[in-house]
Write a protein that binds this DNA or RNA. Structure first.
Lengths: 341, 341
DNA sequence: TACTATTATGGAAGCGGTTCCACAGGTGAT
DNA sequence: ATCACCTGTGGAACCGCTTCCATAATAGTA
C-alpha cells in the first residue's frame, strides 16, 4: 500500500480509528492487548501519520520563515544568518527558520515558485539576491510578506540596504589619506552569476575616491575574478610582478583581503610595512587576523531584517522601518602610512 | 473575526466556497465582477488561507528536516551546517532544512518536545548536544528518525562521532615530538553548560600524550574558561607571566588558538619561533591564518550525517553506515622545533 | 440483586482548504 | 423551435488526522 492511513491501520487491526489515534498519542486507556496489536500493524504496514492532517485537526499554528541566500560559504552570509536567528529567538513566538540556499542562480526562480506553490513559508527574507518585479508580484499575490537585504539601494520600504559605493569610497580614501598613490582593486567580476553588482558598486566607490585625489585609473591595478581567497591570492601575485606594483590593495571582501595578504607575505614582502591591504565587511575572521576593513554590520542587518519581517507578520500593514548604522572604517594592523617602512 | 476561513469569505461575498477557492488560485473562469468582489472581501476580512489545510487537500508532500545545534556562533557549527546543506542539495528531493538553535541548555528539552508535539519535522539531525535516553525514546516513539553528530563515541548506529581523545593526543604528541616539554592546555571548562564534554576528552588525550613521554602534569599549564577567543587571550596572558612559561600551547579549538597567538604576539614574543601553538578543528579560518591544527572534517561530518538521515527517511530501516576519515594532523606555520629560534 | 461508576472502544464531526460534478442561463447552429 | 455546447457558479465530498460523544462491558457499591 502506498501510503497507509489510520483507516487502513484500523481496518487491519480490527479496531476503530479512534483507537488507533489513541495509540499513536500514547494516551489514555487503551488495553495493553489492543495497543500491542495496533502497534504491530503499524509496524507491518509501515504506517507514518501525516504531519499536515495532524496539524490541521489539532489546529496548531506553525509558522515558517524562509531565509533565501545565495550560498552559505562566505562568512558574510553566516553573520547575517546569525543575526536573523538572534532576532527570532529574542521574540519567543515559535517561528521556524527554513534555510534556502540558492545553489545555482538559474534555479532561484524555480525555488521561489515552489515555495509559493506549496505555501511553505509565511514570510521570506531574501538576502543579496536579485529579485525581479515579476517575482515580487508573485509574492505579493500569494500574500507572503518579504524583506530584502540588498546590496543596492532599492527604495523598497521593506528592505535594508548597504551603501556599497560609499563603502568602496571609504576604503579607498583611507589608503589615499595614508599617502598611497598606487592603489589596486581586487574584486569579483563586476556582475557575478547571481546578477549581484556588489563588486561593481564598491568599484565605483574606488573610482570616485581616486577621482577626488586626481589619480588616473591604472587598468593593471584592477583585478577581477571569482569570489574567494584563492583567486585573490592569484591576482595579487600577478599584481606583484608588475614593473610598478601597487603599494596598497583594496580587496572587496575580507576573505579576498586575506588571500591578498598571504600572497604578499609569500613573495617576501610585509603587510603593512611594504604593502597595505584593506578589506570590506568586517566579518569575525577580520578581528582575529587584525585586518583593516570597512564594517557593514552584517549581523545587525540580519537582525533588523528579521525584526521587520516579524512586524509584518504580527501586525500586517504596519512596519516600523529600521536603519542600519552607517558604514564604518575599522583600522587595524594591515594598513599604514606610505613610505614609513 | 479571529481567523476567517473561505466559508466566511464566501458568505460575506455572497458566493460559494468553490468560487472563492478559484479566485485564490487565480484560475479558470471567474467573472471579473465576482473576482473583484471576492478580492475586496478577502482584503476587508484580512483573510489568509491556511497553509496546512491547503497542503492536506492538495496532498503535497512537504518534508522537513531539522538541524539542532547549540548555537551558530562558533565556525565549527557553521561548517557542519554547510555540509548538511550540501548533502541536501545533492539529492534533489525537496526537503526543507529547519534550523533550531538551542540558545539555552535548559530549553533544549522543551524545544524537543515542541518539535515532537507539533510534528514539525520528519527527521532530525542533532549536533553536539547531549540527548538523554528519555529524549531518544521520545523521538523513537514519535517515529522521527534522527542522527547524532557527537563528540563522544556513543555506539549508536545512527550517529557519527569524532574521537576527541585521540585528537587531543595527536595535537599534544606533535608538540612533544618537536621537543617541547612545557606544553600548556587551553580549553573550555571540562564540561560546559550543555553538558558537552569535548574539552574533557581532548584534555584526556593531552594527558595520555604527556604520560607517554613521562612528563608530569603541571597544573599551572592547564587553563580553562569559557569558549571563545577573548578568554583564550586572557588565559594565555596569564600563562606568559608564569616564572617558567610554556614553550607550546595546545588550544582545544582553532578559535581559541587564534586568541592565544594574539596574546603571545602582543607580549612581544613570536609564533612559532618563541612559542608554538596548535589548535583543533581545522575550520576555514585556520587555513587563512596558517594555523597548525587537527583536522576533524567538520563539513564532511554534516554531509555524512545528512546522508544517513536521508537514507532513513527514504528507505526506513535501511541505513548505510558512513564513516568519517580519521583525524589528521595539519601542520602549518604556528608550530616549530623547540629551541630552533 | 439492582443500580451506578468506570473503562475500553467505535465512529461521526470537524479542521480549512481543493476539486469535481451538477446545473442554470446564455449562444449559436440546424 | 430544438438541441448541443459553453461559461460561471454552488456545494458536496474528500484529504488524514483528532476528539468528543455514545455505547457496551465490566467492576464496584448498597
Amino acid at each position: 500500500m502506498a501510503n497507509p492511513t489510520i483507516y487502513d491501520v484500523a481496518k487491519a487491526a480490527g479496531v476503530g480509528v479512534g483507537t488507533v489515534s489513541r495509540v499513536l498519542n500514547n494516551s489514555t486507556r487503551v488495553s495493553p492487548e489492543t495497543q500491542e496489536k495496533v502497534l504491530s500493524v503499524i509496524q507491518e504496514l509501515g504506517f507514518r501519520r501525516s504531519k499536515v492532517a495532524r496539524q490541521l485537526s489539532t489546529g496548531v499554528q506553525h509558522r515558517n520563515i524562509g531565509a533565501m541566500l545565495p550560498y552559505i560559504t562566505p562568512p558574510s552570509f553566516v553573520e547575517r544568518l546569525r543575526g536573523m536567528q538572534m532576532a527570532l529567538s529574542h521574540q519567543d513566538n515559535d517561528f521556524n527558520l527554513i534555510l534556502y540556499t540558492v545553489s545555482e542562480p538559474d534555479r532561484q526562480h524555480e525555488q521561489l515558485l515552489t515555495i509559493v506553490d506549496q505555501s511553505t513559508v509565511d514570510g521570506l527574507l531574501i538576502t543579496t539576491l536579485n529579485i525581479s518585479d515579476e517575482e515580487r508580484d508573485l509574492l505579493k499575490q500569494a500574500g507572503i510578506p518579504f524583506v530584502i537585504l540588498s546590496d543596492v539601494f532599492t527604495g523598497d520600504t521593506n528592505g535594508i540596504s548597504t551603501d556599497n559605493v560609499h563603502g568602496g569610497y571609504l576604503a579607498t580614501q583611507h589608503l589615499l589619506q595614508l599617502g598611497h598613490r598606487r592603489v589596486a582593486y581586487v574584486g569579483d567580476e563586476l556582475t557575478n552569476n547571481y546578477g549581484i553588482p556588489t563588486s561593481d558598486l564598491r568599484y565605483k566607490g574606488y573610482l570616485s575616491a581616486l577621482a577626488e585625489y586626481d589619480i588616473p585609473v591604472n587598468a593593471d591595478y584592477v583585478c577581477l575574478g571569482m569570489h574567494g581567497e584563492e583567486t585573490a591570492h592569484r591576482l595579487t601575485r600577478q599584481l606583484l610582478t608588475l614593473p610598478e606594483p601597487p603599494t596598497a590593495i583594496f580587496a572587496m571582501s575580507d576573505i579576498q583581503a586575506v588571500g591578498c595578504i598571504q600572497a604578499v607575505r609569500e613573495s617576501g614582502l610585509r603587510v603593512p610595512e611594504d604593502i597595505s591591504v584593506i578589506g570590506f565587511d568586517d566579518v569575525q575572521l577580520s578581528r582575529y587576523v587584525g585586518l583593516t576593513t570597512v564594517r557593514q554590520h552584517l549581523e545587525q542587518s540580519g537582525y533588523l531584517g528579521m525584526q521587520m519581517l516579524l512586524d509584518m507578520l504580527m501586525t500586517p500593514g504596519k512596519v516600523t522601518p529600521r536603519h542600519l548604522p552607517p558604514l564604518e572604517l575599522v583600522v587595524r594592523n594591515t594598513t599604514q602610512q606610505y613610505g614609513l617602512a
